[in-house]
């Protein structure tokens, strides 16, 4: 456990010191501000009915989960795996007394912390922004739904990140991984639309599964099915990713 802890703290430390994380935070912040200004402009300028204060975080999440969040997760996974392979810095860690399984798990955990951190940051900013521009709409039920939505969204994004990690260990170049991920994302989305019957097999179509959690009537069976599919995917891609990571000769 000591070795895992050391490897995990190192990954968080390195992630924190890279400029990319700061850029991600700034982009998230700007996206929310622009979104809120847009909503505010529509309402006050044209008198259109838009989202209330506690609908705003949900609106942000639905836009974020389809665009920026998968992109951020992809970039961080590439940074943690592909960039380290290509810059030859992975061997710094591989010759220390820590097993490859612990190192791999520490890297995956760091990606998990990043995803959860971004989700919480976006959640807090959007709640704050919603309250600031529309304070009278505050309800505890709204707050509860917002928190649940953001928390459960972690699972599909993490599974998506595990697929990217697998690709990072399968393909050497980070740029190639990036383009494969984009093509895969568009393909999954496209197949999901053309063949809706099979859409539940793709993790990208589960990005909005938080809606199942906040619906007036919760469909437990559907919830359980989607959860199990995601867990299955996570186990498969973690195992496959680790297999390749462990076999890698440096």
């Amino acid at each position: 456990m000591e070795m895992f802890k050391g490897a995990f703290i190192n990954e968080i430390d390195k992630m924190y010191r890279r400029k990319k994380v700061v850029v991600v935070v700034i982009i998230s912040f700007l996206a929310i501000i622009i979104g809120q200004l847009f909503v505010f402009g529509l309402r006050s300028g044209w008198g259109l009915r838009t989202v209330s204060g506690f609908e705003f975080p949900g609106m942000v999440l639905s836009a974020f989960i389809e665009t920026l969040l998968p992109l951020f997760a992809t970039l961080i996974a590439i940074d943690i795996f592909s960039v380290e392979f290509n810059q030859n810095t992975l061997k710094i860690l591989l010759v220390r007394p820590v097993s490859r399984l612990k190192l791999f798990t520490a890297k995956i955990s760091a990606i998990g912390v990043f995803i959860m951190g971004i989700l919480l940051l976006v959640m807090m900013l959007s709640i704050l922004s919603g309250l600031l521009f529309n304070p009278e709409s505050f309800t505890f039920l709204g707050l509860y739904r917002t928190v649940i939505s953001y928390l459960v969204t972690f699972i599909p994004v993490m599974v998506f990140a595990l697929i990217v990690v697998f690709l990072c260990n399968f393909v050497k170049s980070g740029t190639t991984v990036f383009f494969i991920t984009i093509i895969m994302y568009i393909a999954f989305r496209g197949i999901g639309i053309v063949f809706p019957k099979y859409s539940s097999l793709f993790v990208t179509s589960m990005f909005n599964w938080y809606n199942l959690w906040i619906a007036d009537k919760i469909h437990f069976l559907k919830l359980a099915r989607e959860f199990l599919i995601m867990i299955g995917c996570a186990i498969m891609f973690f195992t496959a990713g680790f297999y390749l990571f462990d076999k890698k000769d440096l």
Binding site: G6, I9, K14, T89, K91, I92, P97
Partner: peptide
């Protein structure tokens, strides 16, 4: 082994701090 690698975006101290955690 082969080449002495280090993280360019970290200082000399921070690089060694990273190793010390093991």
């Amino acid at each position: 082994i082969e080449t002495a690698e280090s993280y360019g975006y970290l200082s000399a101290y921070e690089n060694l701090k990273l190793h010390s955690r093991f």
